[in-house]
Simulated assay, not measured.
Amino acid sequence: MGDAISKRTTIVDIARLAGVSIKTVSRALNDEPHVSDTVRRAVKDAAVRLDYHPNIAAQSLIAKRSYLIGLTYERPSPSYVVDLQNGALERLENERYRLVVLSFGHVASRPADLGTFLLRAGLDGVLLAPPACDQPIVLDLLDRQKLPYARITPHSMLDRGIVVTMDEVAAARTIAAHVLEQGHRRIGVILGDPSHVSSHQRTEGYRRAFFDAGVTVDDALMVAGDYTYETGYAAALDMLRHSTRPTAILAQNDDMAVGAIAAARDLGLQVPHDVSIVGFDDSDVSRTAWPRLTTIHQPVREMAWDAADRLIAAVGDGADAGRRDHPHQLIVRASVTPPPAIA
């Protein structure tokens, strides 16, 4: 026979080594009051010596908590989702809480289904990314059941719950102004998913920049997309096939911008010599594209970290609601140059 399987260390073993009761071990490990510093140190030293690792499921039963934090989103850019997850995971790294990633499609058409799904998931709290963060039905359901939530980049009802946001109108205005300052006047726009408020906010920012520059928006050059590479490619292909093609394209995220670069190349055009292209988000793909993308840095990872941090506090004592704004940054790279006529 092989060696017997070693028994997992329990709080009974810690209590025996530290010379205290099982209840005292539980209180010390959970940093509860009414335990002296000397006893707390003795218990934690014993736990280290015995290589003790707490059973989260057992802790959940005792504390009547799941120690699960949900993160819900709807199929946006893969890079965006990775940044969301990494930001939340970095904050939860040394906590008892675990992150549960919950993808949910077509939120705008069935918000009640999403709310019910979240309530049935056994979560202690939930991070709501777009577009769920802007759905009043979802927020109403969570409020009624007293499930804490933090909203990442919402665009409405900014007085509800924990809000971590960035001014997307100002950010879009900044990048459109940069393109206009290079001398571009015939500018195409590849719109994002119309069910995401972010697309409308970014469009508003572009329009303000055009107004500031005294340039008329050509609605014929505003083409629908949905934040995917494929729609960016198709929209740019359509725009660039015309004899009066735009000299620059504003794509409402980096994935669509990279699709637009591919479309330009397939038509024999050079970026940025023949057409300048910009994105939005500063995701990983913006740095690996060629040429590298001029874009807006949206601090997704930092916002997700902040939202998770404040949500943990809310789960603990119900406090820390309110709004916190994060700044955007224009990242100038090689995908923009003045149009050929004035270069």
Rank of each mutant, 00 (worst) to 15 (best):
R49S: 15
N55P: 03
D134W: 06
Q252Y: 04
P54M: 14
T203N: 08
T231Q: 07
Y52A: 08
R8M: 15
E32Q: 05
A313M: 12
L139W: 06
P148V: 06
D143G: 08
L293G: 06
L267K: 00
M222A: 08
V271L: 03
P291Q: 02
D83F: 01
F117Q: 14
A264C: 09
I296S: 08
E181A: 15
D45N: 15
A170W: 05
L99Q: 11
L123N: 14
L50C: 12
L311P: 09
G232M: 03
Q298V: 15
A257I: 06
L191Q: 09
V82A: 14
N86P: 00
I137N: 03
P78K: 05
P154E: 06
D45M: 11
V223T: 12
I137W: 00
E90Q: 13
L237W: 04
M222N: 04
P54C: 15
H178A: 11
M239Q: 02
I331E: 14
D281L: 08
A172L: 04
R207A: 08
V163Y: 09
I261Q: 03
M239F: 04
N55M: 08
M1I: 13
G161R: 07
N86T: 10
T174N: 11
R207D: 03
A88R: 02
I187Q: 05
A18S: 09
L127P: 02
G268W: 15
S6L: 14
V82K: 12
E230Q: 13
P33R: 15
D320E: 13
F117W: 05
P131Y: 03
V336T: 06
S335C: 08
Q85E: 07
L71W: 01
K23D: 02
T216P: 03
A172T: 10
V179H: 08
V169P: 09
I187H: 02
V35Q: 07
I137A: 12
L237Q: 07
Q85V: 14
P299C: 07
T244H: 12
D317Q: 01
L84K: 00
V215F: 04
N253F: 09
K146M: 13
G2P: 15
P340V: 07
I331M: 12
G192R: 06
S156G: 14
R208Q: 10
I22G: 12
L84I: 08
D134K: 07
I331H: 09
L50R: 11
I62Q: 07
A15N: 09
R202C: 02
R287L: 03
A28E: 03
I5G: 13
S79T: 14
S199L: 01
T228Q: 14
D238Y: 10
D284Y: 05
I14P: 03
Y206M: 05
L240C: 09
E168R: 06
D193F: 00
D317R: 01
A263Y: 01
T153Q: 13
V258G: 03
E302G: 15
M166D: 09
P111K: 01
R41T: 14
A171I: 02
S103W: 15
I331Q: 14
A341L: 10
L221F: 02
Y149G: 04
A307V: 10
V315W: 03
R41F: 13
P111E: 11
A18V: 09
T72N: 04
R202N: 02
T72Q: 04
R292Y: 07
R65L: 12
L250Y: 03
G259N: 09
V25Q: 13
